[in-house]
Design a protein around this nucleic acid. Sequence first.
DNA 1: CGCTGTGTTGATTTTTTTCAATCCCCGTGG
DNA 2: CCACGGGGATTGAAAAAAATCAACACAGCG
Lengths: 231, 231
Amino acid sequence: MNEAADDAFLDVFARAPRRALAPGEVLIHAGDAATQVFNIDTGMLMVSRPGLDGRRQVLSFLFPDNFVGLTASGRYSFTVEAVTGATVAVAPRAALERRLARDPAAERAFLAMTYRVLENLVDLAFSLGQRSARERLAVFLLYLRHRYLLSAGLPVDDDAAMRRLEIPMSRQDIADFLGLKKETVSRGLAELERAGLLRRDRRHALQLLDIEGLRRLAGVLDFASPARRPG
Amino acid sequence: MNEAADDAFLDVFARAPRRALAPGEVLIHAGDAATQVFNIDTGMLMVSRPGLDGRRQVLSFLFPDNFVGLTASGRYSFTVEAVTGATVAVAPRAALERRLARDPAAERAFLAMTYRVLENLVDLAFSLGQRSARERLAVFLLYLRHRYLLSAGLPVDDDAAMRRLEIPMSRQDIADFLGLKKETVSRGLAELERAGLLRRDRRHALQLLDIEGLRRLAGVLDFASPARRPG
DNA sequence: CGCTGTGTTGATTTTTTTCAATCCCCGTGG
DNA sequence: CCACGGGGATTGAAAAAAATCAACACAGCG
């Protein structure tokens, strides 16, 4: 459904046309015919699965070099929209499929990427099913930081780096990711601040004061723990 | 991580040795070296991701013809155990990898299976994040029935079929699947019974009295809705 | 500079969990 | 064949967590 890194099949995007997205703009509507695949150049996107009655579950956030467009059937089963302004490379799905059919190494790389998506979903399911609101929030902050570190090519186990965190998505988006209400997200952040784990700066940025403490709260071994390397 | 159907790559299991499992017996321990892959012959298995402090998230239940053993790295990241007595076909992981590398059709089938696993996980994440306890329970019952119908080769949209449901797993297993406590599962079932949607027979079997009503509660379009076909 | 919509905080209600007390299915052994 | 014992299951009461309802704050924008 999304998410990648430096993989063989990405060359289909090498000289692909680019598309610019304004914040909030929808790239893929759930239910659309799945004719295109995308690779993020810049900005942050959000993948979500809409329900029938307006509920939605946000599944992941996408960063530069992530891939989106993976689907089993002929239709996308998820929505993708821009969180910040963004640009994406656009290729026909058929081009990717040809590429994969022709080149076993590319196919293997694609499969490996699919595994990564899968593991992220398992982590999300674990959070949603087993963790409290505050724990989920801690995991979320570490997850965001981890993704930023990866994007920046920095080591993910350096607790001194990247203590200032930009949070470009709305509280509602975070709530829909963590299976909470937006008020609970606000309260949770306030509580983490009271506990000395972070300091809220502006609405969409904060300082992580105690990354080790956040890890303890999150139940280590998940996002951004030194014990766990990507790939 | 698991789950399949009638796919090309399954022939690696054709003349593979079988292993019998007693109820509760563990087939894969999270953290083990991932040297083998399995295909279910008979019985029901359960896949879960353990946390650090004893919490665990059950990710799926496996039925005959389902595949398990999929992993990104060299180690399994999940536990698989038998719910009922079961028998599984056992093949070396290397044999499967050779098979996939040699045969593009098999590799494509394998990728398709991975997509199905992914979609199931997305459905689970949606349930965990967005649905109430009672809704999750309704979805779970429909999901179980759906899997039984598939296993039996029956049409999944026949509301008259398979109204009696065997529930071989414990309330704790259900709770860990749905992100609830076992008491909440009990209460939820009692409530669905009071609402006339089902009748509890023995502890591990019940009658679905109003499948349409369960669908409405679950928010249709998910497991076992006529609108949604497998694959 | 006021408007608008997101975000925060407070009070209250609802849902789920926790703690605790039986219950009863089921296998065992008499 | 039936009584017995044990462990999962159910139910109840109380506590905790999260959602809901409501008021207000505040940033960004016309």
